[in-house]
Nucleic acid binder design. Structure first.
Lengths: 267, 267
DNA sequence: CGACAGGTTGACCGTTATCAAAGATCGTGG
DNA sequence: CCACGATCTTTGATAACGGTCAACCTGTCG
């Protein structure tokens, strides 16, 4: 049962968007909707964006006519760094597709502590949970940098799903992946020690980034801790430990070289 | 953000199957396929079961003709207590719908420890993960008692999904619920102390069972520990502690009376 | 009535959270 | 371009939470 193949590293999507944005996703990149057709957005919403819809995996198999139909029902919105796109308890009525930027999806547990669930990159979507249950959001979505999203409201989406069942299959596929990720993550947090979780995370990053032995962590220690169910201090310490053991080498706080994959695996 | 409403307690499905089986789900109930039309199964598989398909939430909105069409593609199988229905790494090609019995779904983490994900009751289905990803199972399914399942193979299911898109919507809805459960569970294991997780679990049981202040745990300490990411010993200790605090009263090891809901909530 | 699985309790100690403070890094504005 | 402040990261000291191992109960079933 060795299965180093799915994985995600919260930073996945190399497969979806092979070369969408080459610029580093930092903040305040420039204008919004950079590679989107219409562009005047920064107040609240701008008008439909073609590039977004045509590229996302759940729609990109449709033909032009169908795409146009979907695009015509789409709204685009811009969010500034730190903006909350939706929050738990809020009623939901749209699917959000990331066109540009990065979105943090997290939950607050009963005790008020936050757990990071995933980070959305261009091409990823969210909002589904509440959408298909006709219910409220359970999680929070926060723009990590200035971000553009395309939105499809529930009724339109349902219409398309009835009309083009292949879309549903794509979404089912995406849900399956996410469910797998989530269950895997739950199982790890429940059964592995922190050091192991970190090691596994590093290995997943390596596989997803495809940049050889050097990986770039897509987030801060705090977020990583939140994702892995630990604290920033412990992350620091365990990484230092893995370095002492000669398994990794920390170039900067975000750049890490994997020196001994096998060592990591048994950590 | 108080949301005591979804929940499951691993023992959900009161909503799906209001009065399906009144007999306690114990072991060796009697013959198999008790309330199923055909009944000669015990060797390996028996032939199509109508009752199963017509009752499950993902199909029960269809009309008779459509149901018959689905039923005709269905196979039924019987598993004895302890049988493995599928295991991680195995290639998947069917959806399993529980007709009678109980199925444990669990994962093994990298270190070989087991985490219980959920327990399926009649009307629940599984196998989706691998189905929609055209991939292998990530989890194990084990019959907890003698159980009957209906199976639909992938190609048939896909055909129906294309033909009756409402089925896809139902499945999307089910996936959303499961994803919510899984994320919630991950967040809890990652952020709450064991005592809190146990308390929350008890509260969910109460809401789902609708039996007033007295709940019946649907599993052993070992399984509960596996589900909550802890050990049987710790479960014992924490329950004893909650009892000392006057929040609960343990009648037998499976029957627990909730004495102070508010107390539990702040645990 | 005895055996066995399941459950409880105790002693111990390892892992990891917490609190505190010092060091690094990054973005901003002068 | 540099300096400042804010934020992120590291490191240390300490303690508690919960896991482990072992022994002892308890209830269930043959």
């Amino acid at each position: 049962m060795t299965k180093r193949r799915d994985n995600h590293c919260l930073d996945s999507k190399k497969q979806h968007q092979p070369d969408l944005h080459n610029q580093p996703h930092d903040k305040h990149e420039q204008a919004c909707c950079s590679d989107i057709n219409e562009c005047s957005c920064h107040g609240e919403t701008c008008i439909h964006s073609k590039a977004c819809i045509t590229r996302v995996p759940i729609f990109n198999h449709l033909d032009d006519e169908q795409l146009d139909e979907i695009i015509s029902t789409t709204r685009t919105a811009h969010f500034k760094k730190g903006d909350i796109i939706y929050h738990a308890g809020q009623e939901s009525d749209s699917l959000y597709i990331v066109s540009k930027g990065r979105i943090r999806i997290y939950r607050l547990s009963e005790s008020g502590r936050e757990q990071l669930l995933r980070i959305l990159q261009p091409g990823d979507f969210t909002g589904e949970l509440a959408l298909f249950r006709r219910s409220v959001h359970e999680s929070f979505a926060e723009a990590m940098v200035d971000t553009d999203v395309c939105m499809i409201v529930r009724d339109d989406l349902e219409k398309f799903l009835m009309q083009y069942p292949t879309i549903a299959l794509r979404i089912l596929n995406e849900f399956s992946n996410r469910l797998d990720e989530s269950e895997k993550q739950a199982a790890r947090v429940a059964t592995e020690r922190v050091e192991t979780r970190i090691a596994l995370y590093l290995l997943e990053c390596m596989e997803n980034q495809g940049t050889g032995m050097e990986i770039t962590l897509p987030m801060t220690r705090k977020d990583l801790a939140s994702y892995l169910g630990t604290t920033p201090e412990t992350i620091s310490r365990k990484l230092a430990e893995l370095e002492t053991l000669g398994y990794i080498r920390q170039m900067t706080s975000r750049k890490i070289q994997i020196l001994d994959m096998d060592g990591l695996m048994i950590s």
